[in-house]
Amino acid sequence: MSDKPSDSSSNAGPIFLVGALAVAGTALGVVFFAADEMGESITYFWDPTQVVEAGSAAIGPDIRLGGMVQAGSLTWNESDQVVTMTVTDNENSLSVRCEGAPPQMLREGIGVVVEGTMTEAGTFDCDRLLVKHSNEYKAATEDMTAEERKALYKTVEGYEGL
């Protein structure tokens, strides 16, 4: 084969094109068609409602829980390095306890994804806390004081070492 001139297989080009496009199109079609269904089974995180509905089945295995930090629920105990908060999807909410210093973006009203396990007590024990930012980009407002602007980018002590 390798002895043949370089344009030996030129006639096969269009056949390969049709074949590759057919395979690619089918693959893409399957993914597009199944994306909604797959959203259910291939899930990156569960929301509180799904965890609540799963009931006792959710207790034990490692799961990811995603939702919003409920206003007024966030506490940070610096000496014990523990964060507690309520994670909600506006239908159901779960209390979550995380050890370790949180990411500096963590605040009330922001999205979070926490990894950990549900306990018998009905609270979520998390060992990894991620903050989910929205795709909204807004300018810091003009009437903010220098102090408030600084507060936009605060973190907690100990974060650096994580």
Binding site: A12, F16, L17, A20, A24, V31, M38
Partner: peptide, 30 residues
Amino acid sequence: IVTGVTTILAFVNVPITYYSVKWWNTLHQD
């Protein structure tokens, strides 16, 4: 031919990547 076929197959992932944030729960923002 190898380049053409594999490029077309690799390309399938471009729209999947693009729409992934719409289809699935992601950490990445929309």
